[in-house]
Design a binder for these strands. Structure first.
Lengths: 163, 163
DNA sequence: CGCGGAACATTGCTGAGCATATAGTTGTCA
DNA sequence: TGACAACTATATGCTCAGCAATGTTCCGCG
């Protein structure tokens, strides 16, 4: 029977992953929306806020957000129009330009962050025992490092965030 | 310092989750593309293939795929044009229509499935010890049930899939 | 029987992303 | 110095998804 193929543990695994992530992002999106942000905009604000000088080159921003360069241009356009960030010319390389988070952008981020953390607590960290959580994070790290090695640099993880 | 806030373990957790999932979906998308499928199309084929009668009402398909009904209409349009599935009128309710996977659709799915399973093996199941994998799945199940309870019905998981 | 509300699918419109092409800038090498 | 290649950001065309509105069909109630 071909039907039984769909009960393959690997299908179960990816299905579970997908459904869990889908549920989480929907919850988060609703939360972000309350603060007038989309998921990508929140992501951009987070990346900028945690970067030295609160700024990032357009290219680096694209690399960190798994967004194309043109996608970054659009998002930055919108967010600049909203006053959440502004562009700044690079003094040493006139091709580059920086996206700099504004005080308004930081304020918006800080406004949205508590609720965001509460949701993570509600749907992830609060649901698992410390041991389970550690196991989950270890597993996710292994998967992330294998499937998305580019994300390892200057990102949420890796305490040795040199460069 | 506000900066340290970004090292909150909850931020680490969701970042890891996001980066891992992003990496996986990118790998999978490339794989699907080799067989002329998008991720959603693959998802639709999977859902149909595992459903009784190899068919599903448009509404139910929408519910299972976390896609809006109009989105389902469009996807089914494209896939019907490609011959992967066809519409079938519901005999008892003339408002409803079914999407039925065709032999060509099943063939395409079976063609893509081995590579898909291999990727899952390569980036998830093969990277973890059996214990780690079990822990991961348990944790994902907990998160899924909390964040996306609608997905529990008739889906990848739950052996007791009684309606 | 006939009417009003609900359910289902589709369509127009808008927003967002990617791929590609374009323009401007920098660095190198002869 | 001058030309060519590499890099950065932006503009354009295309695809796709969601929301809101529409048309059709079903159901219940007077």
């Amino acid at each position: 029977m071909t039907t039984n193929l769909f009960e393959d543990p690997r299908i179960t695994a990816i299905g579970l992953f997908s459904e869990a992530y889908s549920g989480l992002t929907n919850r988060f999106a609703a939360q972000f929306d309350e603060h007038g942000l989309s998921a990508v905009e929140h992501e951009v604000l987070m990346r900028l806020a945690r970067s030295p000088g609160r700024q990032l080159r357009m290219t680096d921003l694209a690399a960190q957000t798994s967004l194309s360069t043109s996608g970054v241009t659009r998002v930055v356009d919108r967010m600049e129009r909203s006053g959440l960030l502004c562009r700044s010319a690079c003094p040493t390389d006139r091709r580059s330009s920086f996206a700099v988070i504004t005080d308004a952008g930081l304020a918006r981020l800080n406004e949205a962050l508590p609720g965001h953390l509460a949701l993570i607590e509600e749907f992830i960290t609060g649901l698992l025992t410390p041991g389970q959580l550690d196991g989950l994070l270890d597993a996710l790290r292994v998967i992330r490092d294998a499937a998305n090695p580019g994300a390892t640099v200057g990102t949420t993880d890796s305490p040795h965030s040199g460069e």
